[in-house]
Design a protein around this nucleic acid. Structure first.
Length: 608
DNA sequence: AGAGGTGGTG
DNA sequence: CATGCACCACCTCT
């Protein structure tokens, strides 16, 4: 590919005088597409400084020294960044958006993010998930090596910006244009333009979500952990006491301190205990296995694990992530973290905080700032509605229209009268139907279905047959998706989001296994992926609506089919209805054959 | 450092 | 024959 710049000697203008700003802006304002990048002393906007802001054309990069220039007061600078008519090429724009919003009050508009574009174009393929580096894009699209070592020099810069740093900074904007041009063509060819637009709109919401963060009641959190530790320690002690007899130790060391027989957390040592010393024969030490074992040690271990899990995964380590400046948690939401289009979440992962329970009401520790409320909306049985919608199965559409899908399914399958109290009358039948309903969306087969419900494989197959006899279009839809995924190498959601598959060669030894894997993934993709599409539209709609209505509120969190906003107390109740409205509007963009439902909750803790 | 096991969420 | 989707964190062990 022909480049419009010399990678060894890129053109740039380093601007260190306020008087030079206007001149560069004038040039940039003439462009319909500019590239933006930013160099900072770190990754956290609250504790890091902005050093350089690069705004580029295809030929030249204007490097603004943010330390010495008065950019915050420059309305023209801000207007350019916020101009919705100018496309802003960025790499992981969420990062720069957050810094510019916090340090300069700038809200970049009309982003084209090459990282997200690549994620959309390669969803599901190995190495495409999550964060894709500019270096990789440059290597792939421009067959050039982009030196990235210089970035580290910004973290402990000594004052003077070096020529090497300027070259590095300039390349980061110049490289974006030729990548952009090729990606646009690909997006058009794959009919992924609308999905790209959605992701680019979402990235501003995500940036603000991360910037705002989530308030957490630290002392309450510590109290929960402390009480869990007490219980865990008791079970840890009981465990050591009950297994000591199987080991050549009296449990006391030379100094009179008690010493453990084995490391209770070691899977290897536990296997030795169960299989060599207790005379059992366990394939693993997972909870599903331990649950079937009569031995008292298994019971103690299960109890211990229940507490240990919560303490290790959600204990003090989470509190360490509280931001020193804001006192809030600012997790990373990875916009294309999942192959299906869902978000993933890290540092900490607030999408896996346990549901509230008596002993560990973790979610109750997530609270609004003083003077605010949390407004929570989630979609009700969204994936079932999606399955009904995409399959077009009249019976399933009818089932989700009724108040309880699983009961209705059970009634049809087991020839019972459907009634409002079905759940009470036939809890087992409902549970079986629920497992089938969910299992199907994951491509489950008769074997594991039978195992889940606790029936023989033959009965499991009967159930499946019965199910598909009632919902024939569900079967045909899933089969078609699976077949097409293998023949075409991709599947897509109604909104157009694609997921690709590496189809193995027939000569591969595990060909059948891998094809089955792809078929299951493909059956799930339109369902999980549509859920992601809908929630992402909802996020964009909500942010826009908050602004339009002048509500003092922020999107703070999302968990796949749920959105949490933090809204000023006196506005929260009214806003909750608008939040519900936007959730439903987003759903109805894509889901046409069944109603979309979402109830709003206003409260002082995160639960619903 | 990375893999495997275990278990938390939707 | 064995085959339930999508993630991330923590632990141990090599």
């Amino acid at each position: 590919m022909e480049l419009k710049f010399d990678p060894k000697n890129p053109k740039y203008q380093y601007i260190t005088e306020d008087s030079e700003i206007e001149n560069s802006l004038e040039k940039l304002e003439k462009e319909s597409i500019i590239a933006i990048d930013l160099e900072s002393t770190g990754f956290d906007p609250y504790t890091s400084k902005v050093l350089l802001i690069q705004l580029g054309t295809p030929e030249i990069s204007y490097i603004f020294d943010a330390r010495v220039l008065h950019l915050k007061e420059n309305e023209r600078f801000k207007a350019l960044m916020e101009n919705p008519k100018t496309i802003k090429l960025m790499q992981n724009g969420k990062f720069d958006y957050g810094f510019l919003k916090y340090h300069f009050g700038i809200e970049i508009a009309n982003i084209f993010d090459v990282m997200l574009a690549e994620g959309i174009l390669t969803a599901g393929l190995k190495g495409s998930m999550g964060l894709i580096s500019l270096r990789n894009l440059v290597s792939q699209y421009l067959e050039t090596d982009l030196e990235k070592e210089t970035r580290k020099t910004f973290e402990n810069y000594t004052g003077k910006i070096t020529e090497q740093q300027l070259i590095y900074s300039a390349l980061d904007t110049l490289m974006l244009f030729p990548i952009f041009e090729q990606q646009v063509e690909k997006l058009k060819n794959e009919q992924l333009v609308n999905i790209a637009k959605l992701e680019f709109a979402v990235t501003r919401v995500v940036a603000e979500m991360e910037l705002r963060g989530i308030f957490i009641n630290v002392s309450r959190w510590r109290d929960i952990i402390a009480s869990l530790k007490e219980k865990r320690n008791k079970y840890a002690y009981d465990f050591q006491e009950s297994i000591r007899q199987y080991y050549a130790t009296n449990g006391i060391d030379l100094f009179g301190n008690s010493v453990d027989a084995i490391n209770i957390n070691s899977q290897v040592q536990l296997m030795d205990l169960f299989n060599n010393r207790l005379g059992l024969d366990v394939p693993s030490t997972g909870d599903n296995i331990l649950a079937t074992i009569e031995h008292p040690v298994a019971k103690i271990l299960r109890d211990y694990r229940g507490y240990e899990k919560l303490i290790s995964a959600f204990g003090e380590s989470l509190l360490e992530k509280v931001n020193k400046v804001t006192g809030r948690l600012h997790p990373d939401f990875i916009q294309l973290g999942a192959a299906t289009g869902r978000f993933s979440c890290q540092n900490p992962n607030l999408q896996q905080i346990p549901r509230n329970s008596e002993e560990a009401p973790f979610r109750e520790c997530f609270i609004p700032a003083p003077g605010y409320k949390l407004v929570v909306t989630d979609y009700s049985s969204m994936e079932m509605r999606i399955l009904a919608d995409v399959s077009g199965d009249q019976k399933l559409i009818q089932a989700v229209n009724d108040s309880d899908v699983h009961s209705f399914t059970a009634a049809l399958m087991f020839n019972k009268e459907y009634s409002a109290d079905f759940k009470k009358k036939y809890p087992d039948l409902r549970q079986a139907a629920k497992i089938i309903n969910f299992g199907l969306m994951y491509g489950m087969g008769p074997g594991s279905l039978a195992r889940q419900i606790g029936v023989t494989p033959e009965v499991g197959k009967e159930y499946l047959d019965k199910y598909f006899k009632i919902f024939p279009h569900v079967r045909s839809f899933l089969d078609t998706v699976a077949k097409n995924a293998v023949s075409k190498g991709w599947s897509k959601t109604p909104a157009g989001r694609k997921r690709w598959y590496n189809i193995p060669d027939k000569s591969e030894p595990d060909y059948n296994r891998r094809i089955s894997q792809i078929q299951r993934e493909a059956k799930n993709h339109p369902i999980q992926g549509t859920n992601a599409d809908v929630t992402k539209y909802a996020l964009v709609f909500m942010k826009d609506r908050l602004k339009k209505e002048g509500v003092d509120g922020f999107v703070t969190h999302t968990v796949h089919d749920e959105v949490v906003c933090e809204v000023r107390e006196d506005q929260a109740q009214d806003w909750s209805l608008l939040q519900q409205e936007e959730m439903i509007r987003a759903g109805e963009l894509i889901i046409k054959k069944v109603p979309v439902k979402s109830e709003p909750f206003v409260g002082d803790v995160w639960e619903h």
